[in-house]
């Protein structure tokens, strides 16, 4: 298992700790600004990363928008902590984007759509 695969497995393991309580959704500024689209919420983004890393979704325009619109403001983590779960949600999104953005940057000016 190479380093990237290890990071991927570790990330999927952390994401699986989410209990899907969805309390993080309402406090997310992008969820509020999008008029209540769950893909623009912390919970939605974790699900997107999970299915992208599992190869069950293609990394297309819509999913890029959902992931890269995260402000990483960590407001969701406050509520996650207060509900007893205490996931580093923004760190997980950061790691997910890191694994994906390495490819994006490499594809560079000729990113395939």
């Amino acid at each position: 298992m190479n380093r990237q695969e290890e990071q991927r497995e570790a990330l999927l393991g952390e994401i699986s700790k989410c209990r899907s309580c969805r309390f993080c959704i309402d406090v997310c500024p992008t969820y509020q600004a999008s008029g209540g689209v769950e893909s623009f919420s912390p919970y939605g983004r974790l699900q997107i990363i999970k299915y992208l890393l599992a190869g069950r979704l293609d990394f297309d325009d819509s999913l890029t928008y959902c992931l890269y619109s995260c402000l990483k403001c960590r407001r969701c983590e406050n509520i996650c902590k207060s509900k007893g779960q205490n996931l580093d949600i923004c760190e997980l999104i950061h790691s997910g984007r890191y694994l994906l953005s390495t490819n994006l940057a490499r594809e560079g000016k000729h990113a395939k759509l």
Partner: peptide
């Protein structure tokens, strides 16, 4: 959003 992937890239 259209062309989001290429914009980020």
């Amino acid at each position: 959003m259209q062309s989001s992937k290429v914009l980020i890239s």
